[in-house]
């Protein structure tokens, strides 16, 4: 049994699980509202199109939806006792963790690709030629490409964090709540400076910004920039979270 088997099982699991469809439905309804609101605002105020707006909102939604996708991954297995069963199989802990992670990330990728519909609509309404014909709007695709890349990495990081909390508790609700809280703090770290200095010092604000998920996304990827430090940040978050998750799973052998 390899990580590939686990990946296929987990990936398939999402497509037979009503919760995954409900998550996808809720995400698409909320993003649809966001897209139409923004489009209407731009039409009313004679503004150019911006495909990155809906991506920014998707990032925020992942704070709430990533835990819904990951909370069952280990918590359910632990509650039902199947995790112990799996640990008796010829399977390395790291394969188990990576398989589950890639399964969740794969489903997230499918969900993310559904949002290409919005970009397709904007492309249909506009033009990729920087020198458009009169009355035809130009659509700068660069920030959209960078935004998707960033959002894909960002989603991987939120899923990895969600998995970590799923491995911490055998209660799905607790796991989901904890990961949601942590993701919210990591998201809001970008705007921690708005909290008065009497509450948190500037050093803490700076530290929060460094570990903030949003800070590595909103000022770079969404603006059309791919910065090595931001790419590395999300990969590092994934690696560290997956490493700790593996150690947590492994700890069941000696606890």
């Amino acid at each position: 049994m390899s990580f590939w088997t686990i990946f296929k099982r987990e990936f398939r699991q999402y497509f037979v699980s009503p919760i995954a469809y409900l998550v996808a439905f809720a995400v698409l309804v909320l993003l649809g509202l966001s897209f139409n609101t923004d489009l209407n605002y731009r039409i009313t105020n004679s503004l150019p199109p911006n495909g990155a707006v809906v991506l920014g909102n998707f990032g925020f939604l992942m704070v709430f939806f990533a835990p819904l996708l990951t909370m069952r991954l280990f918590a359910e297995e632990m509650r039902e006792g199947t995790l112990e069963l799996m640990m008796t199989m010829p399977l390395r802990d790291v394969d188990l963790v990576m398989g589950k992670f890639l399964g969740a990330w794969g489903f997230y990728t499918v969900l993310l690709s559904l949002t290409l519909v919005y970009q397709g609509i904007l492309l249909f309404l506009t033009n990729l030629d920087p020198n458009p014909a009169p009355l035809q709007t130009y659509f700068d695709i660069g920030p959209v490409i960078a935004g998707y890349m960033g959002l894909w990495l960002y989603g991987g990081a939120t899923i990895a964090i969600g998995m970590l909390f799923s491995a911490l508790s055998d209660n799905q609700i607790v796991a989901g709540f904890l990961s949601m809280s942590v993701l919210l703090v990591l998201w809001a770290g970008d705007v921690a400076g708005l909290v008065p200095a009497s509450v948190i010092s500037t050093d803490v604000v700076l530290a929060l910004r460094v570990i903030s998920l949003q800070a590595h996304y909103s000022t770079s990827f969404l603006e059309g920039l791919i910065a090595l430090q931001d790419v590395y940040f999300y990969i590092a978050i994934m690696m560290v979270s997956l490493f700790i998750t593996t150690r947590l799973v492994e700890s069941r052998r000696w606890r």
Binding site: P130, D140, I141, G142, P143, I145, A146, S220, E223, G224, L225, I226, A227, L228, Q229, Y232, F233, A236
Partner: peptide, 21 residues
Amino acid sequence: AGYSLAEQQNLVRDLTDAQIY
């Protein structure tokens, strides 16, 4: 440490059409 190194490198790819960065 890796992040610190990546930050020092400041490698940035500008995908905007007008290369505004």
